[in-house]
Design a protein around this nucleic acid. Structure first.
Length: 431
RNA sequence: GUGAGUGUAGCUCAGCGGUAGAGCGCCGGAUUGUGGUUCCGGUGGUCGUGGGUUCGAUCCCCAUCACUCACCCCA
């Protein structure tokens, strides 16, 4: 007997009941970002491995042990993208848009990381993100954060906190790296195994260790914010002032360090305690050196990425919204003449009402059995066509979700009637 | 990559060393062309997979795959 095929570990199917939620979520994000005049960009899921190792950083866990990398038929090494920023930068650079003035773009789609799956962490997961290139000043950092806040608002997500930090310039970060390594080396006997390894590879990451002993040790470490350069400090102050004047709550977290090497200056993270160990809903920051690293001329950048699976866990949708997955009208068709009449009638309705969701009953059966299916379909109305109606060129309309009588109208009046009936029902705008 | 837990019908789960059950769902029916409630009947699983122990395994052991949670990592 052949083995049952199943999806790859950590890669999930999205079935229709869930897919509608994804559509609603994606629609909300898309409309919000577009209201800030961010334009969508789509890049390939597969890139040369080098793009990621150069941008994300050789010393990061993502590049070291989490990428899906394999040789192409010609020997090139390819990688399934673990994040979206690198591909955006590559594409904008390749097509000359980086030098064509400031660019605001957004993307969404699947990302891949070979990690042990758990709640809020899959091997194929989905992110939506925004990036802005060519803008140095802190207004754009503030805009990024405000966009996120607006998305939480639209989705009805309440339990999120904004954490903020500044890493300073590349140079000041290098300087602080030295200071931190000196401090930690002096206390090497107190470091855990992870931290000892990171001392040489990526010492800043020790700052956000979850180990309480490490956190205690770091209490008295020289603070990162004390060593950042004055320009970065000014930039950070401007950002904070803008957030304050827009009434946004945030917490300065001096230990906030991102796992990707390309960040400098502003870093931020939206977190929740409702999701267990994977509480980061969205994270981002500034990456002023990234474009240069990937081979362009120095161009500042800021961006964020949000984890859509995690956001979906935080979101509830109304019955009206979820109802977009079920028909508005169920066509009850009994007899060959009714079938022929009904299919043509439905096509004419769709010509005039492109968003109408009308489900044609297939496979015959008694009125009784067809009504049972109409009910189960969650449709609002049954549109009934039997031999009698066909002969008279009429249809019967039966409301299924409210206490009202069935009535008969001429087929010529059907379009107007349906327009009236469905007007009050929300969700007519297509997704 | 490390640790722990789980895997029985489409779903939620019960069960037992002698080859399985409930509820829900699904299909059909309760005389003429009408759903939701009710009643009746039916469909449904080689007990995740492979091996071992045993006269015999869904149950015990090992391996493997998947899921869940935590570490880790990060969105």
């Amino acid at each position: 007997m052949t083995e049952k095929l199943q999806a790859i570990r950590g890669m999930h199917d999205t079935l229709p009941d869930d897919a509608i939620k994804w559509q609603l979520l994606e629609q909300t994000i898309k409309s919000t970002l577009q209201s800030y005049c961010y334009r969508e960009i789509r890049t390939p899921i597969l890139e040369k491995t080098e793009l990621f190792s150069r941008s994300i950083g050789e010393a990061t866990d993502i590049v070291n042990k989490e990428m899906y990398t394999f040789p192409d038929r010609n020997g090139d090494f390819l990688t399934l993208r673990p994040e979206g920023t690198a591909g955006c930068v590559r594409a904008l650079l390749q097509h000359g848009l980086i030098n064509a003035g400031p660019q605001r773009v957004w993307y969404h789609g699947p990302m891949f990381r070979h990690e042990r799956p758990q709640k809020g962490r899959l091997r194929q997961f989905h992110q939506a993100g925004a990036e802005a290139f060519g803008i140095q000043s802190a207004e754009i950092d503030a805009e990024m954060i405000l966009m996120c806040a607006r998305i939480w608002n639209k989705l009805g997500i309440k339990d999120v906190q904004l954490q903020l930090n500044s890493l300073g310039s590349y140079a000041s970060r290098q300087k602080y790296r030295g200071i931190l390594v000196d401090y930690l080396s002096a206390h090497k006997d107190q470091l855990d195994e992870d931290s000892i390894n990171r001392l040489t590879t990526n010492p800043l990451r020790i700052l956000d260790s979850k180990n309480p002993e490490m956190q205690a040790l770091l209490q008295s470490a020289p603070p990162l914010l004390d060593s950042i350069d004055s320009e970065s400090a000014d930039h950070f102050a401007t950002l904070r002032a803008l957030l304050n004047s827009n009434g946004l709550d945030y917490e300065i977290n001096p230990r906030l360090v991102r796992g990707l090497d390309y960040y400098n200056r502003t870093v931020f993270e939206w977190t929740t305690d409702k999701l267990g160990a994977q509480g980061t809903l969205c994270a981002g920051g500034r990456y002023d050196d990234l474009v240069e690293q990937v081979g362009g001329k120095a161009t500042p950048g800021v961006g964020f990425a949000m984890g859509l699976e995690r956001i979906l866990e935080m979101t509830g949708f109304s019955n009206a919204e979820l109802g977009l997955n079920s028909p508005q009208i169920y066509q009850v068709l009994v007899g060959d003449a009714a079938l022929d009449n009904g299919i043509k009638l439905a096509e004419r309705l769709r010509d005039k009402m492109p968003t109408l969701r009308i489900l044609m009953h297939c496979g015959g059966g008694s009125f009784r059995s067809q009504f049972k299916k109409a009910d189960k379909s969650q449709a609002d109305y049954a549109l009934i066509l039997g031999e009698e109606e066909v002969a008279k060129n009429t249809v019967n309309i039966k409301p299924l979700r409210k206490d009202a009588e069935q009535y008969e109208i001429h087929q010529d009046d059907l379009l107007d009637e349906i327009t009236n009936l469905l007007q009050p029902i929300q969700g007519q705008t297509g997704l």
